[in-house]
Simulated assay, not measured.
Amino acid sequence: MTTVLQPPLPSHPVLRLRLAPRGNLPRAIDGAWWPRSYDLLTELPRLLGGLPREWGHITSVTVNGTTWSAVPGRTLVSNQVVRLHRTRTASAPRTIVLLAPGRGRWDLLVVPPDTTEQAAESLMAAAAGGHV
């Protein structure tokens, strides 16, 4: 009998995030995020943990209320309170808005979790390049 060892699964899946280069001009979209599900309480800690340190502590997150699973008004991420807001406006059906007091606001395109890898890569590249 032969035993084949399987490599361990990563405990933290790779964050699928692409950010636009920093610049002085304001942008409509600051990058793209491709979550693995619409469960915000599972996905948000991964996203916030992978953001650049210079963005500071994100204290408020706004998502489309018709897209994401139900969420409470706030949650703890890395022992810090993050306020969660849901909007139903048609102007931002596939975005997530991140706010850090004194640092800024960032709007990310949300690539649907069930998007193929090829389509997701194309969407993320376009968002990071300012073509969305």
Rank of each mutant, 00 (worst) to 15 (best):
V82M: 00
Q118K: 09
G129S: 15
I58S: 05
L99E: 15
A100M: 07
S11Y: 03
V82L: 02
L98K: 05
T67F: 13
P101K: 09
Q80N: 11
E117Y: 01
P13T: 07
L15H: 03
P101T: 10
L19Y: 06
V61K: 06
L76P: 00
D114A: 15
M1G: 15
L99W: 11
W34I: 08
A20D: 02
R105K: 15
A125I: 05
A32D: 03
A32I: 01
G23A: 13
T3D: 10
W33E: 05
P45G: 00
S69L: 14
R22M: 09
P26E: 10
H85Y: 14
T95M: 08
H131C: 04
T89E: 14
A100L: 09
G102L: 12
L44V: 04
Q118F: 01
L48F: 08
I29Y: 09
D107N: 13
S37M: 01
R103Y: 08
L47I: 01
T3N: 13
V82A: 05
L15D: 00
H12S: 11
G104S: 04
A119I: 07
S122W: 01
P26D: 01
A128K: 07
P10G: 03
P10H: 09
N24H: 13
L48E: 04
G130L: 04
L51N: 03
E54S: 09
R74Y: 10
H131L: 14
R16Q: 15
V110R: 06
P113V: 06
A32F: 05
S69H: 14
R36C: 01
